[in-house]
Protein backbone atom coordinates (compact mmCIF):
# COMPACT_ATOMS: atom_id res chain seq x y z
CA UNK A 1 0.00 0.00 0.00
CA UNK A 2 2.70 2.45 1.00
CA UNK A 3 6.23 2.24 -0.29
CA UNK A 4 8.81 4.74 0.86
CA UNK A 5 12.17 4.62 -0.90
CA UNK A 6 15.30 6.48 0.12
CA UNK A 7 13.32 9.46 1.44
CA UNK A 8 15.38 12.56 2.15
CA UNK A 9 13.63 15.55 3.65
CA UNK A 10 14.88 18.99 4.62
CA UNK A 11 13.41 21.81 6.62
CA UNK A 12 14.93 25.19 5.93
CA UNK A 13 18.13 23.61 4.70
CA UNK A 14 18.53 21.13 7.57
CA UNK A 15 18.24 17.51 6.60
CA UNK A 16 15.80 15.69 8.89
CA UNK A 17 15.16 12.43 7.07
CA UNK A 18 18.26 10.89 5.58
CA UNK A 19 17.14 8.00 3.44
CA UNK A 20 14.09 6.31 4.94
CA UNK A 21 12.85 3.05 3.43
CA UNK A 22 9.56 1.56 4.51
CA UNK A 23 7.10 -0.87 3.02
CA UNK A 24 3.61 -1.18 4.45
CA UNK A 25 0.92 -3.55 3.23
CA UNK A 26 -2.82 -3.40 3.74
CA UNK A 27 -3.90 -4.93 7.02
CA UNK A 28 -0.61 -4.21 8.78
CA UNK A 29 0.02 -2.06 11.81
CA UNK A 30 3.48 -0.52 11.95
CA UNK A 31 4.92 1.41 14.84
CA UNK A 32 7.62 3.96 14.27
CA UNK A 33 9.50 4.74 17.43
CA UNK A 34 12.27 7.11 18.12
CA UNK A 35 13.49 9.76 20.51
CA UNK A 36 12.70 13.44 20.15
CA UNK A 37 14.22 14.92 17.05
CA UNK A 38 14.65 11.60 15.29
CA UNK A 39 12.36 12.71 12.45
CA UNK A 40 9.32 10.54 13.16
CA UNK A 41 6.82 13.38 13.16
CA UNK A 42 8.44 14.77 10.02
CA UNK A 43 7.81 11.44 8.34
CA UNK A 44 4.14 11.52 9.38
CA UNK A 45 3.73 15.09 8.14
CA UNK A 46 5.44 14.40 4.82
CA UNK A 47 3.10 11.49 4.18
CA UNK A 48 0.10 13.69 4.89
CA UNK A 49 1.42 16.46 2.65
CA UNK A 50 2.63 19.30 4.82
CA UNK A 51 4.37 21.74 2.51
CA UNK A 52 6.95 23.16 4.89
CA UNK A 53 9.06 20.08 4.25
CA UNK A 54 11.25 19.77 1.15
CA UNK A 55 11.63 16.31 -0.22
CA UNK A 56 15.10 16.42 -1.75
CA UNK A 57 15.37 12.81 -2.77
CA UNK A 58 13.45 9.57 -2.82
CA UNK A 59 9.86 8.66 -3.48
CA UNK A 60 6.64 7.62 -1.82
CA UNK A 61 4.22 5.43 -3.67
CA UNK A 62 0.72 4.97 -2.31
CA UNK A 63 -1.59 2.41 -3.93
CA UNK A 64 0.63 2.63 -6.98
CA UNK A 65 0.39 6.43 -7.21
CA UNK A 66 3.06 9.05 -6.64
CA UNK A 67 1.95 10.39 -3.27
CA UNK A 68 4.33 13.35 -3.33
CA UNK A 69 2.62 14.62 -6.44
CA UNK A 70 -0.71 14.96 -4.63
CA UNK A 71 -2.13 17.87 -2.61
CA UNK A 72 -2.95 17.11 1.03
CA UNK A 73 -6.69 17.15 0.27
CA UNK A 74 -6.24 14.76 -2.67
CA UNK A 75 -4.34 12.41 -0.42
CA UNK A 76 -7.14 12.60 2.12
CA UNK A 77 -9.75 11.85 -0.52
CA UNK A 78 -7.66 8.88 -1.62
CA UNK A 79 -7.72 7.55 1.93
CA UNK A 80 -4.69 8.97 3.75
CA UNK A 81 -5.41 10.21 7.24
CA UNK A 82 -3.19 11.64 9.93
CA UNK A 83 -4.25 12.08 13.53
CA UNK A 84 -2.44 15.24 14.55
CA UNK A 85 -0.07 15.42 17.46
CA UNK A 86 -1.33 18.95 18.06
CA UNK A 87 -4.89 19.18 16.68
CA UNK A 88 -5.62 22.68 15.40
CA UNK A 89 -8.27 24.91 16.97
CA UNK A 90 -10.61 26.50 14.44
CA UNK A 91 -12.86 29.09 16.08
CA UNK A 92 -16.14 29.67 14.28
CA UNK A 93 -16.29 26.29 12.55
CA UNK A 94 -18.35 23.72 14.39
CA UNK A 95 -16.93 20.28 14.81
CA UNK A 96 -19.90 18.67 13.12
CA UNK A 97 -19.75 21.02 10.11
CA UNK A 98 -16.05 20.29 9.80
CA UNK A 99 -16.58 16.53 9.92
CA UNK A 100 -19.55 16.62 7.57
CA UNK A 101 -17.73 18.72 4.99
CA UNK A 102 -14.68 16.45 5.01
CA UNK A 103 -16.79 13.32 4.79
CA UNK A 104 -18.92 14.67 1.97
CA UNK A 105 -15.89 15.80 -0.02
CA UNK A 106 -14.49 12.30 0.27
CA UNK A 107 -17.83 10.69 -0.61
CA UNK A 108 -18.19 12.94 -3.66
CA UNK A 109 -14.73 11.90 -4.80
CA UNK A 110 -15.78 8.27 -4.68
CA UNK A 111 -19.03 8.93 -6.50
CA UNK A 112 -21.16 8.44 -3.40
CA UNK A 113 -24.11 10.54 -2.42
CA UNK A 114 -23.43 13.24 0.14
CA UNK A 115 -25.08 12.99 3.53
CA UNK A 116 -27.55 15.65 4.53
CA UNK A 117 -27.55 17.23 7.96
CA UNK A 118 -30.04 14.78 9.47
CA UNK A 119 -28.37 11.63 8.14
CA UNK A 120 -25.00 12.91 9.16
CA UNK A 121 -26.16 13.72 12.68
CA UNK A 122 -27.43 10.20 13.17
CA UNK A 123 -24.23 8.74 11.77
CA UNK A 124 -21.93 10.95 13.84
CA UNK A 125 -23.80 10.45 17.11
CA UNK A 126 -23.23 6.72 16.95
CA UNK A 127 -19.54 7.15 16.23
CA UNK A 128 -19.19 9.71 19.00
CA UNK A 129 -20.81 7.43 21.53
CA UNK A 130 -18.25 4.72 20.90
CA UNK A 131 -15.48 7.18 21.69
CA UNK A 132 -17.19 8.53 24.77
CA UNK A 133 -17.60 11.91 23.11
CA UNK A 134 -20.39 14.11 24.42
CA UNK A 135 -22.83 15.26 21.69
CA UNK A 136 -22.13 18.77 22.90
CA UNK A 137 -18.58 18.50 21.58
CA UNK A 138 -19.96 18.23 18.06
CA UNK A 139 -21.58 21.65 18.28
CA UNK A 140 -18.52 23.38 19.63
CA UNK A 141 -15.89 24.98 17.43
CA UNK A 142 -13.29 22.51 16.22
CA UNK A 143 -10.96 21.73 19.13
CA UNK A 144 -11.56 25.14 20.68
CA UNK A 145 -11.29 24.87 24.42
CA UNK A 146 -11.04 21.08 24.23
CA UNK A 147 -8.88 19.36 26.82
CA UNK A 148 -5.86 17.41 25.60
CA UNK A 149 -7.80 14.16 25.89
CA UNK A 150 -10.82 15.58 24.07
CA UNK A 151 -8.65 16.77 21.22
CA UNK A 152 -7.12 13.33 20.78
CA UNK A 153 -10.47 11.59 20.96
CA UNK A 154 -11.73 14.06 18.40
CA UNK A 155 -8.94 12.97 16.08
CA UNK A 156 -9.99 9.36 16.45
CA UNK A 157 -13.59 10.38 15.82
CA UNK A 158 -12.50 12.01 12.57
CA UNK A 159 -10.69 8.85 11.62
CA UNK A 160 -13.77 6.78 12.39
CA UNK A 161 -15.88 9.09 10.25
CA UNK A 162 -13.54 9.36 7.29
CA UNK A 163 -12.63 5.65 7.30
CA UNK A 164 -9.19 6.02 5.72
CA UNK A 165 -7.17 3.28 4.02
CA UNK A 166 -3.96 4.48 5.57
CA UNK A 167 -4.06 6.05 9.02
CA UNK A 168 -1.09 7.67 10.68
CA UNK A 169 -1.26 8.33 14.40
CA UNK A 170 1.24 11.05 15.18
CA UNK A 171 2.07 10.77 18.89
CA UNK A 172 -1.58 10.20 19.63
CA UNK A 173 -0.64 8.92 23.09
CA UNK A 174 1.15 12.06 24.21
CA UNK A 175 -0.54 13.83 27.07
CA UNK A 176 -3.18 11.16 27.64
CA UNK A 177 -4.00 9.62 30.96
CA UNK A 178 -4.55 5.89 31.14
CA UNK A 179 -8.35 6.02 30.66
CA UNK A 180 -8.13 8.30 27.65
CA UNK A 181 -5.34 6.17 26.27
CA UNK A 182 -7.55 3.11 26.49
CA UNK A 183 -10.45 4.84 24.75
CA UNK A 184 -8.17 6.05 21.99
CA UNK A 185 -6.57 2.62 21.60
CA UNK A 186 -10.00 0.96 21.47
CA UNK A 187 -11.00 3.39 18.76
CA UNK A 188 -7.95 2.51 16.72
CA UNK A 189 -8.31 -1.23 17.28
CA UNK A 190 -11.91 -1.07 16.13
CA UNK A 191 -10.69 0.27 12.81
CA UNK A 192 -8.12 -2.42 12.34
CA UNK A 193 -8.96 -4.61 9.39
CA UNK A 194 -7.34 -6.36 6.47
CA UNK A 195 -7.92 -3.48 4.04
CA UNK A 196 -6.50 -0.79 6.25
CA UNK A 197 -2.92 0.01 7.20
CA UNK A 198 -2.04 1.90 10.34
CA UNK A 199 1.18 3.68 11.25
CA UNK A 200 1.69 4.55 14.88
CA UNK A 201 4.29 7.17 15.58
CA UNK A 202 5.28 7.20 19.22
CA UNK A 203 8.04 7.93 21.62
CA UNK A 204 6.96 5.41 24.22
CA UNK A 205 6.20 1.76 24.26
CA UNK A 206 3.09 2.38 26.42
CA UNK A 207 0.54 2.75 23.60
CA UNK A 208 1.79 -0.47 22.05
CA UNK A 209 0.45 -2.39 25.04
CA UNK A 210 -3.00 -1.48 23.77
CA UNK A 211 -2.46 -1.39 20.05
CA UNK A 212 -0.20 -4.30 19.29
CA UNK A 213 1.76 -3.63 16.10
CA UNK A 214 2.86 -6.19 13.54
CA UNK A 215 6.14 -4.39 12.99
CA UNK A 216 8.23 -1.91 14.87
CA UNK A 217 10.82 0.40 13.32
CA UNK A 218 13.26 2.48 15.21
CA UNK A 219 14.05 5.83 13.69
CA UNK A 220 17.27 7.48 14.78
CA UNK A 221 18.72 10.62 13.38
CA UNK A 222 16.64 10.47 10.22
CA UNK A 223 17.14 6.79 9.41
CA UNK A 224 15.42 3.55 10.31
CA UNK A 225 18.16 1.73 12.21
CA UNK A 226 16.30 -1.31 13.36
CA UNK A 227 13.10 -3.11 12.43
CA UNK A 228 11.47 -6.04 14.12
CA UNK A 229 8.27 -7.40 15.59
CA UNK A 230 6.59 -6.29 18.81
CA UNK A 231 9.47 -7.75 20.86
CA UNK A 232 11.56 -4.80 19.75
CA UNK A 233 9.44 -2.51 21.85
CA UNK A 234 10.27 -4.46 24.97
CA UNK A 235 13.91 -4.45 24.06
CA UNK A 236 13.71 -0.72 23.66
CA UNK A 237 11.93 -0.33 26.94
CA UNK A 238 14.70 -2.25 28.62
CA UNK A 239 17.70 -0.72 26.92
CA UNK A 240 16.46 2.76 26.16
CA UNK A 241 17.23 4.76 23.06
CA UNK A 242 20.78 5.48 24.19
CA UNK A 243 21.78 1.86 24.04
CA UNK A 244 20.22 1.43 20.63
CA UNK A 245 22.01 4.58 19.54
CA UNK A 246 25.31 3.22 20.85
CA UNK A 247 24.76 -0.13 19.17
CA UNK A 248 23.91 1.62 15.98
CA UNK A 249 26.91 3.89 15.96
CA UNK A 250 29.27 1.00 16.64
CA UNK A 251 27.77 -0.92 13.72
CA UNK A 252 28.05 2.20 11.61
CA UNK A 253 31.72 2.62 12.57
CA UNK A 254 32.44 -1.02 11.76
CA UNK A 255 30.72 -0.66 8.43
CA UNK A 256 32.68 2.44 7.65
CA UNK A 257 35.89 0.66 8.63
CA UNK A 258 35.21 -2.22 6.29
CA UNK A 259 34.49 0.24 3.47
Amino acid sequence: MLEIKNLHVEVEGTEILKGVNLNIKAGEVHAIMGPNGSGKSTLAQVISGRDVYDVTNGEISYLGKDLLDMEPDERAREGVFMAFQYPVEIPGVTNSYFLKTGLNEIRKHHGLETLDAADFLKFIKEKAKLLDIEPDMLNRSVNEGFSGGEKKRNEILQMAVLEPKLAIMDETDSGLDIDALRIVADGVNRLRNEDRAIIIVTHYQRLLNYIVPDYIHILLNGKIVKSGDKQLAFELEEKGYDQIKADYSSIKTKLEETV
Partner: peptide
Protein backbone atom coordinates in the same frame (compact mmCIF):
# COMPACT_ATOMS: atom_id res chain seq x y z
CA UNK B 1 -3.52 22.24 6.36
CA UNK B 2 -5.74 20.63 8.96
CA UNK B 3 -8.83 21.16 6.80
CA UNK B 4 -7.03 19.88 3.73
CA UNK B 5 -5.94 16.70 5.47
CA UNK B 6 -9.64 16.01 6.00
CA UNK B 7 -10.34 16.05 2.27
CA UNK B 8 -11.31 19.71 1.89
CA UNK B 9 -9.85 21.53 -1.11
CA UNK B 10 -7.65 24.56 -0.60
CA UNK B 11 -10.17 27.08 -1.95
CA UNK B 12 -12.94 25.64 0.12
CA UNK B 13 -10.72 25.60 3.20
CA UNK B 14 -9.95 29.25 2.61
CA UNK B 15 -13.65 30.08 2.35
CA UNK B 16 -14.48 28.10 5.47
CA UNK B 17 -11.85 29.87 7.54
CA UNK B 18 -12.73 33.30 6.20
CA UNK B 19 -16.38 32.69 6.79
CA UNK B 20 -15.64 31.48 10.31
CA UNK B 21 -13.84 34.74 10.96
Amino acid sequence: FYLQTRGIERDMARDILTYAF
